[in-house]
Amino acid sequence: MSEPVVDTTHEEGETRLSTGGLGRTLLVAAGVVFWGWLLLRWANDWLGGLFVPVGQPFVAPATIESLGASIPGLAGAFDALAFAVEYLPALSEGLWLTLVLTVLGIFFGFFIAVPLSVARVYGNLSKYVSLLYTELLRGTPLLAQLFVLYFGLNISGYVPGFLDGVFANNAAWAALVGFILNSAAYQSEYIRSALQSVDTGQLTAGRAIGLSKVDAIRYVVLPQGLRFAIPGWTNELIYLIKYSSLAAFITVPELFKRANDIASSNFRYTAMFTITAVLYLALVITASRMMNYVEDRTAIPGLGTGSGR
């Protein structure tokens, strides 16, 4: 009694952002340039000036300007590039903090979100606790939550000794706590809806072989639900990258704060925020590409939304 497997033909993964090979190549090239520069930049500044003095651009702005001056018609473009190059070292420091706060916020938020969503779907009393938490944290502005944590509760004043000094400004801790708590609420909603889309027969089958409810959720429902959750969950990651800029309002020197501080000294708001926008965009595209990759890697035939479907 053996017959061939019915269908094992996997379709080639679609690229969502770019359609042709050229678009994809350009995107990869841009990514290599951006991350190559950023990693070298951080390495240089952390290791006390590996290539150029700490905080100094790799190429002097004046060199770029003089280069552009010799090419008619492109002087303006080179001026703009020189301007960007001059301030990118300062922005790269803010970019680091933005990245760290976002990644840690999402990461720790996830471990709160999973029990929250499980409680929401399968809990009795805990369902209402989860609901209350989620509605409260989703229903009030993130900025207001950061104000409460920073000004109201003065979280930054209670940073334990061994954590003191990890960030240049302890306000970052208040921001991190805010991001964790807030993103936990949003993530739990994405995971909840994914858990609900797992066929109820799966839990029944798990219970029928003698798994406890907790084990059946852990070994059967969650592995499927979390896969279903990836596309929606990616939204929350992208959201937090951009909304981490609200930390600027509680004095955290992340990307937006850096850009704003520089702009208010040189008054070139449009130029500064255009550069900043490009940096955020680079982070967001990287995140969405990465999650696309994760989705494809975790895809299982007949399950979820990956190309293994």
């Binding site: 066929d199 027969g201 799966q202 089958a205 896969r227 007949g302 399950l303």
Partner: peptide
């Protein structure tokens, strides 16, 4: 054994 199999899909 179930009517709609209910194999663990993952």
């Amino acid at each position: 054994v179930f009517q709609d199999f209910n194999l663990f899909a993952h």
